[in-house]
């Protein structure tokens, strides 16, 4: 069933993509193949493959149990929030805030999660920003402390 739904979505995407690609026109061109031929070719093949997927009888998708799926969804939201706050709060604080709930999902107790969060946040910051010269955001709060 999941394959059918996904195939249907892909079919809609490929039709919409071809629709959008109609508008790709070069104002002036020196070559016989313009900017829209390749995407249209790919999308046409994608549409055909999507139909083939929907017609396939076997399905080998094994979704996790609803309880696990819910936790995976929450974990995704945690990572998404981490991505959003990464630059705003700075690496250390954002990482602490991400690691604590993520570690809890994997069975750590609160002490372990908090220690892991602080350890990873500070440790990776020192490793990358200080030792390896990969600049990471400090966030305003740490910037103010460090001057």
């Amino acid at each position: 069933m999941s394959e059918r739904i996904f195939g249907g979505i892909l079919l809609i995407v490929s039709i919409a993509g071809i629709w959008i690609a109609r508008g790709f026109e070069a104002p002036f061109s020196y070559e016989p193949v313009g900017p829209r031929a390749f995407p249209m070719l790919i999308l046409a093949l994608l549409g055909i493959s999507a139909i083939a997927l929907m017609l396939e009888r076997k399905s080998d998708t094994a979704w996790a149990s609803p309880a696990v799926l819910k936790r995976i969804g929450l974990l995704f939201l945690v990572v998404l929030a981490y991505a959003w706050l990464f630059d705003k709060l700075g690496f250390i604080l954002a990482t602490v805030l991400m690691v604590i709930p993520a570690a809890r999902f994997f069975g750590a107790n609160w002490t372990q999660a908090a220690a892991g969060g602080v350890g990873l946040g500070a440790g990776l910051f020192i490793l990358f920003d200080r030792l390896l010269d990969v600049a990471l955001p400090t966030g305003l709060w740490l910037g103010n402390i460090l001057g």
Binding site: V79, Y82, A83, F86, D87, F91, T95, M98, V99, A102, A103, R104, F105, F106, G107, A108, Q112, A113, G116, G117, L120, G121, L124, F128, V134, A135, L136, P137
Partner: peptide, 20 residues
């Protein structure tokens, strides 16, 4: 290495990679 430390570590290092 316990999974609860490994997985958040992977997430953090991945983000460092993208941010870099």
């Amino acid at each position: 290495i316990p999974t609860w430390l490994l997985v958040p570590g992977v997430a953090a290092i991945s983000m460092v990679g993208v941010y870099a």
